[in-house]
C-alpha cells in the first residue's frame, strides 16, 4: 500500500511566553499543540474543530511548515520533511497551499486579482510565457466562478465572497496535493457561505485534493469532511470518521460541543437538553493536570485529575481520549 499523503506523529508546538522575572525573564511554555498524531490520505478531507485557542490554526501552520514544530514529525508521502533543506522545502510547498479566514486581509491590496492568482505560477514555472500564464489564470478564474474580465481589478473592488474565490484560485492554480483551509467561510455572509462550501467540495473532487478543513462551525465541518478531529487546549480529544463522530460522539467534550450548536428548528432546539459545560476555557499557560477538559467536564472524577487519558480505539477508526468514554 502506498503511504498516506501526510503522516503527523506526536506533533508539539510550544511558544515560550514571558511570565515574570526581573533581571532574567521567566518563560512558561504555551502548549498550543501538544502531541497530535494523524494520517491524511490522498483525496481525503479531515475536519479540525474546537473552540478558539484550542490550537487548530497552529496545527495547520505546523503541518504547512510555516511554524517550526517543537518536536514530533511531519512526513510527506512517507519521507520526513527536513526544515533545513530550503530547496526541498520550496519544492514541497508547491504541493501544499493554504486558504485563510479573512479574504481581504490575505490578498495584497496593491496587486490585481490576475497578478495574485498568477504569482504561484510565476514562482514555480518561470518557463511559462505571459500569454500561457494569462490563459491559465483565466481558466482558474472561471473554475472558481469569477469572470476572467475582472483580471485587472484590485481586491477592494470585490465583495468578501469574491475575494475568498480569489484566495481559493491562488491556492489551487498549482494543482496542489494538500490545501489547508483555515476558517475559509467564517467571515462570509450566510448566503455566500454555501456557495464557497460547494466550490471547495467541487474543486476537491475535480483535483483529487486532500484538505485540512479548520473550523469552529460543526455543521459546516460535518458537511464537508470525511473524518473529523476534535481538539481542546492543544490535545486531541476524539478522532473519527464523520458519521461515527456525529451519530455517536464518545468524548464528553465532543458531546458538549454538539449540544451547544443551535439547530435551526424551533421544536428541536427547545426540546434539547440545556448546556452541559460550565465556565470558560482554562488558561492555556496553566492547563489542568491530567485530562485538560476535566474542569468543565460533567463526568470528571479523581482519576481525571491524576492521569491524562490515553487515546483509545473505541471502534473501527474512532479514537477517544477519555477515562469515562464507556459510560
Amino acid at each position: 500500500m502506498s503511504p498516506p499523503l501526510l503522516q503527523v506523529r506526536d506533533l508539539r508546538v510550544h511558544f515560550p511566553v514571558r511570565t515574570g522575572g526581573v533581571l532574567f525573564a521567566d518563560y512558561t511554555p504555551l502548549k498550543a499543540v501538544d502531541g497530535v498524531s494523524f494520517d491524511l490520505a490522498a483525496g481525503e478531507t479531515l475536519g479540525i474543530v474546537g473552540e478558539s485557542g484550542c490550537g487548530k490554526s497552529t496545527l495547520g501552520r505546523a503541518v504547512l511548515q510555516l511554524l517550526p514544530p517543537t518536536s514530533g514529525a511531519v512526513a510527506w508521502l512517507g519521507t520526513d520533511v527536513d526544515l533545513a533543506d530550503k530547496a526541498a522545502l520550496k519544492a514541497r510547498r508547491r504541493d501544499m497551499q493554504v486558504v485563510f479566514q479573512d479574504p481581504l486581509a490575505s490578498l495584497d491590496p496593491r496587486m490585481t486579482a490576475g497578478a495574485i492568482i498568477a504569482e504561484p505560477l510565476r514562482n514555480y514555472h518561470p518557463e511559462l510565457s505571459s500569454p500561457d500564464i494569462k490563459a491559465r489564470v483565466a481558466r482558474m478564474m472561471e473554475q472558481v466562478g469569477l469572470l476572467p474580465a475582472m483580471l485587472n481589478r484590485y481586491p477592494h473592488e470585490f465583495s468578501g465572497g469574491q475575494c475568498q474565490r480569489i484566495g481559493i484560485a491562488r491556492a489551487m492554480i498549482l494543482k496542489p496535493k494538500l490545501v489547508v483551509c483555515d476558517e475559509p467561510v467564517s467571515a462570509l455572509d450566510v448566503s455566500i457561505r454555501a456557495q464557497v462550501i460547494n466550490l471547495l467540495m467541487d474543486l476537491q473532487r475535480e483535483l483529487q485534493l486532500s484538505m485540512l478543513f479548520i473550523s469552529h462551525d460543526l455543521a459546516v465541518v460535518r458537511h464537508i469532511s470525511h473524518r473529523v478531529m476534535v481538539l481542546y487546549l492543544g490535545k486531541m480529544m476524539e478522532l473519527a470518521d464523520r458519521d461515527s463522530l456525529y451519530r455517536a460522539p464518545r468524548h464528553p467534550y465532543t458531546r458538549a460541543l454538539m449540544t451547544a450548536v443551535p439547530i435551526p428548528d424551533p421544536d428541536q432546539e427547545r426540546a434539547k437538553p440545556r448546556a452541559v459545560t460550565f465556565g470558560d476555557l482554562p488558561s492555556p499557560l496553566s492547563p489542568p493536570s491530567g485530562c485538560v477538559f476535566r474542569t468543565r467536564c460533567p463526568k470528571a472524577t479523581a482519576i481525571c485529575a491524576a492521569a491524562a487519558p490515553p487515546l483509545e480505539a473505541v471502534a473501527a477508526g474512532q479514537l477517544v481520549a477519555c477515562h469515562h468514554w464507556r459510560t
Binding site: V190, S191, I192, A194, N198, A219, R222, H223, I263
Partner: peptide
C-alpha cells in the same frame, strides 16, 4: 426559504451540494 435551505445543519448527514442563494447581497 433561501436562507433556511443554504444553512448547513448539524443534524443533517447529507453531503450533496448545499442549496445556494445566487449572486451577492
Amino acid at each position: 426559504q433561501g436562507l433556511l435551505a443554504c444553512t448547513p445543519r448539524l443534524d443533517d448527514a447529507a453531503t450533496a451540494a448545499l442549496r445556494t442563494i445566487p449572486g451577492q447581497p
